[in-house]
């Protein structure tokens, strides 16, 4: 049993009362009015991070079953390995997705300055369907030539690119505009509702057809100002949890007055569009 995203056994070991916490967790989403299914999560990390966060494929699949999440986009935590190219971490993500192909959609993660283009090609051959870039963790500018080359390579494969845009992010609006000018067909998903630079991004490029946003650990005032047709539900597991991720989307829908169709799109349909599945009739 997991409570608030954590093992009930570990919480009990820590002196907490899991039953009390479970009652509080139930109230987080009670009355929010979210449709039960379908739900798809665009932002999940697998593996073990340098900072101690960890999530195994089995733990994720259990979480998804508990919260009625049908599919999740998965990519590596910050575990670049000895060579810094995420080779092992990407292999583990691809293997997890291959073992649950109806549930997990694998993206590859790279460090643009460390063998990234080769890593992208290796991941493509292994079944990757997107790219994850973390400019803060990997220490690069999103508009740098190396990062732009990664976006171009991903776009050539027909992949979207999920970009960290939360805590610690540099000013993003001009950087994103630069990337989109260099790679006009790119589709960039700004994580965390572009929380790190939300107002500037919204003013500069929110209406660009290549810009999308995920809701993971986003700020509610940011989400209600973004177009629901470009929003993708995300949890940021294991940093985030499903209860508050769903609470956030439910509250945003009510405050912003999203239609039922718009909410269904945020929860799942927009991801299918991003992945090109609606074009394929999937």
């Amino acid at each position: 049993m997991r409570v608030l995203g954590e093992s009930a056994g570990l919480l009990r070991q820590a002196g907490a009362d899991p039953e009390r916490l479970a009652a509080l967790e139930a109230a987080i989403v009670a009355g929010i009015g979210l449709p039960a299914r379908p739900r798809a999560d665009v932002h999940v990390h697998l593996g073990r991070d340098r900072d101690g966060h960890a999530l195994s494929p089995d733990e994720l699949l259990d979480d998804m079953a508990q919260w009625q999440v049908d599919r999740a986009v998965v990519f590596a935590l910050n575990d670049p390995g000895r060579d810094g190219d995420f080779a092992d971490a990407n292999r583990q993500v691809m293997a997890a997705a291959a073992a649950a192909p109806d549930r997990l959609v694998p993206f590859c993660r790279v460090a643009p300055q460390r063998g990234a283009l080769a890593a992208i090609e290796a991941a493509a051959a292994a079944g990757a369907r997107g790219l994850k870039l973390h400019p803060v963790a990997q220490g690069f500018a999103p508009e740098s030539p190396a990062a732009t080359a990664c976006v171009a390579a991903a776009t050539a494969h027909g992949w979207p690119v999920l970009v960290h845009a939360g805590f610690g992010a540099r000013p993003l609006a001009d950087a994103l505009a630069s990337v989109l000018e260099a790679v006009p067909d790119a589709r960039l998903v700004l994580a965390h509702g572009a929380r790190g630079d939300a107002r500037a991004v919204r003013a500069r490029c929110a209406d660009h057809p290549g810009i999308w946003f995920d809701t993971s650990l986003a700020a509610l005032p940011d989400l209600i100002g973004l177009p629901p047709g470009r929003l993708l539900f995300g949890s940021d597991r294991p940093y985030g949890d499903y209860a508050t991720a769903l609470q956030l989307v439910g509250l945003a829908a009510r405050i912003a007055g999203w239609s039922d169709d718009e909410l269904a799109g945020v929860l799942a349909g927009n991801l299918a569009s991003l992945l090109g599945e609606d074009d394929a009739g999937a």
């Binding site: 954590e6 509080l24 508050t244 609470q247």
Partner: peptide
């Protein structure tokens, strides 16, 4: 795990309070 639980409870409260400021009442805990 305990730290993460603290974060989740604070996040739930922050969302609910922000929703209140933005115009709706969120669900009350038990």
């Amino acid at each position: 795990a305990r730290r993460k639980a603290v974060q989740v409870l604070c996040r739930a409260a922050a969302h609910a309070v922000q929703a209140q400021v933005l115009g709706i009442a969120a669900t009350a805990p038990p």
